[in-house]
Write a protein that binds this DNA or RNA. Structure first.
Lengths: 234, 234
DNA sequence: GTCAGCGTATGATGCACATCATAGTTTGGC
DNA sequence: GCCAAACTATGATGTGCATCATACGCTGAC
């Protein structure tokens, strides 16, 4: 990976979900205190249970957030891509991270200190409102996930996992290939199942010509069928 | 039930999770626009999919929040008791309710209009911060639930359901009887299982002398065992 | 008193999925 | 290029739990 210097917040061209609302001065404050970091694929950005000292803002790359269950299985809670902010929950509820963030691609990530963010949050109403809306959205999503997980079977959950990946990270130029590459284990963690069952289910979907494999990549051949398997509206 | 007049917000003695931070003037604004309502056990306060026109604040009684899955099963998302505020997510993300609120006891509930709340939220930093913290806490809880549901088996989930009820609503004076009464179906909906399995699991717990039944009420006999079945720390 | 309706209870059966086992295939380190 | 480790794949087996069926007790209507 070519490591480029991360530009200052004032020149960041990412569509940031939280900081878009800020003006130049606020961004400069963030920028002057921020710290850029590079994380290679597979490296952890922070760990479940650790204490938070600030926010992480993804400049480039993709991240998964996972959590350990009472058993020995890891579960993917959500993904984050460029422009997204990680670790705000821990910071806002003043508690340890309740998930582990891991790069699933090489990443460039900025770190903004707790104090700077909290003081901005306190003085800037727009930022507070953005934060609220971000969290409200997250809450809705995860409540939906909760229902899906507990009341559907594996085939449906795997189909939903693929559609989630499409919705979140999009397709490549060919308009069929998912732009994220996950291992079968990770797809299993996303769909709340074991690696074996994930593999079997994906194989079945392939045999049914709903999806296809291209090396590590997954192609969605029959989007309509995939939606219907996921029991979602096309 | 004896229906008493709901006092003005300025005289409300409930520990409100969101409005505690407000001063007298703010509370008076809320109070003058609020509308009191009584809901009998079993009545719905609002419906999943409907549009929100404001907040509900529980003055007395207990409420369950449920959501329909893709199949035909209803699932309990969370409970709320006196002093808790309902419907803020729908309001803040400007979207329909994503759960149905139903009284599980006779309730007295105040309704605060959308515009009054939003304008207060905009002008009052403390309120914004309270909202943020409330949501951060909710997010943490539900993420934990997600893991539990997907990775544990029924016995563990039922045990956790009982402990949740204890933590949320407490015990009666005898210090063993849960203060909430739920039907077996509702316990099933809480533990993400069917009514039959909920009944069987509770019977088993009774046979193992972990819990006991007293008419409709459930007594927790062996708290330590219950924690260990739930795979939680005592 | 009787009967309908609901909640609780329990057995029988089947199936989806975890688990265990094993093997081929790819990847990265040196 | 080679070997170890990780990933993918597939079969065999077991089991947790949903589903179906049935029945009993309680409550309220008339």
């Amino acid at each position: 990976m070519k490591v480029i210097e991360i530009p200052p917040c004032t020149h960041c061209t990412n569509n940031n979900d939280l900081f878009q609302c800020l003006n130049r001065t606020d961004l400069e404050d963030f920028s002057s205190s921020k710290r850029g970091n590079v994380f290679k694929k597979g490296q952890n950005i922070f760990y479940e249970g650790n204490h938070s000292h600030g926010l992480y803002c993804i400049y480039s790359g993709k991240v998964k957030l996972t959590k350990w269950g009472s058993e020995n299985r890891e579960q993917i809670i959500r993904f984050a891509g460029k422009g997204e902010v990680l670790g705000y929950k821990a910071l806002l509820s003043d508690s340890p991270y309740n998930a582990t963030a891991t790069a699933i691609e090489d990443c460039q990530v900025c770190h903004i200190s707790k104090s700077v963010f909290l003081s901005k949050l306190n003085e800037n109403k727009k930022l507070a409102f953005s934060t609220i809306q971000l969290m409200a959205g997250n809450l809705r999503t995860i409540e939906d996930t909760l229902i899906t997980v507990s009341q559907s079977q594996v085939k449906e959950r795997v189909a939903r996992a693929l559609l989630l990946l499409k919705a979140k990270f999009g397709l490549e130029e060919d308009n069929v290939t998912l732009s994220v590459t996950l291992s079968r284990r990770e797809i299993g963690e996303l769909a709340s199942t074991t690696i074996e069952t994930a593999i079997r289910t994906l194989s079945q979907l392939k045999k049914d010509q709903v999806i296809a494999f291209d090396r590590k990549k997954i192609k969605i051949i029959d989007m309509e069928r995939l939606f219907s398997i996921a029991k979602l509206d096309y």
